[in-house]
Nucleic acid binder design. Structure first.
Lengths: 173, 173
DNA sequence: CAATGAAGTAATTGATCAATCACTAACTTA
DNA sequence: TAAGTTAGTGATTGATCAATTACTTCATTG
């Protein structure tokens, strides 16, 4: 059978992509499942064939966004030379911020969502990213790797805010 | 006339305080005006005698939270010696995070709210805090004041996240 | 071709919520 | 004391939304 280009290969990933966009643009609580469905070009009830609740959809979207950062950092750490390590990690993160801005905006929202499953996903994501960076800094014999890791993450979070509220001077040096 | 301790001196500030708590705990969009009213010990409709909309209430709460940080930083800058400046600013911010955690959580939420008035309040708050710190660093002849200001703000934002998602290792060095 | 199942939707529901309305009770002042 | 003002509430409303139900359409297969 020839591939039908009018039909998506994977409806579930369509819904996740739509949810990332709509949740990021409108806010998780204010966004409606009808808006997600419209973006994914399906009917609103069909979302619930793939996700039992709106919250599980958010959780899945969050996991996708963390996986992208973690995978990207793993690749940098594998291939970068020790003296380019931090620079290349910064470049990788800036690329994610440019190409997957909505995933970062979603993570920012999730920082203040109190639901247990969301909190766990955020803790897990931050913990893993921190560990990857810290291990890489140690491997590269960078001095004071804990502080350098903290400052790397801190700059990243300020960069997020600078993008989110459109205030570039926050990152000026 | 003797002060009636069963009656609040200022209902409006009661409502703002209640809103900061409820919005921070539950999330602005998910929190209801009825919950704010309950916390402020008034009826739900009475909120709308003081604030035309829920959004204006959020805006007012945000302005209160920024004013607290700005005032505190102004005091530190006025009284601190140049070599204690950054340390004292950090102490001041940590005290705010301890005593007025909810105001910081509210600001974190507002970072991803797109409404124009909220966005403006966030830009204005960040701009003013950055300017206070930058001016103080320059006055104290701190080297590379722009970068030091950026790193000061960055550490603050990571500290916010560390508190919000309860992951203290994010700030370990 | 009848039966099965996959893919999808229209219509509905029950709950929730911001905002309004209509009202009362207690003060204040001329 | 009558008239007006301030402080406040109960009841309602119109809109919105997550989730469910009951259905349709179409392709496959025995």
């Amino acid at each position: 059978m020839a591939k039908d280009t009018t039909t998506s290969v994977n409806r579930k990933s369509d819904i996740i992509s739509a949810a990332i966009e709509v949740f990021a643009e409108i806010g998780y609580y204010r966004a409606t499942t009808a808006q997600v469905a419209e973006r994914a070009k399906i009917s609103q009830p069909y979302i619930f064939r793939f996700f039992p609740t709106k919250e599980v959809l958010l959780l899945t979207a969050l996991e996708v966004s963390w996986a992208r950062i973690i995978e990207s950092f793993h690749q940098v750490v594998q291939s970068a030379s020790p003296d380019r390590l931090e620079t290349d990690l910064i470049i990788a993160y800036e690329q994610i911020l440019g190409e997957y801005r909505n995933e970062v905006l979603l993570q920012m929202q999730a920082q203040t969502i109190q639901e247990h499953s969301i909190r766990e996903a955020m803790q897990g994501g931050f913990r893993e990213v921190r560990q990857i960076v810290l291990d890489a800094f140690r491997q590269a014999d960078i001095a004071d790797p804990e502080e350098r890791t903290m400052l790397f993450l801190a700059r990243g979070m300020l960069c997020n805010i600078s993008v989110a509220i459109n205030l570039p001077e926050l990152m000026e040096t």
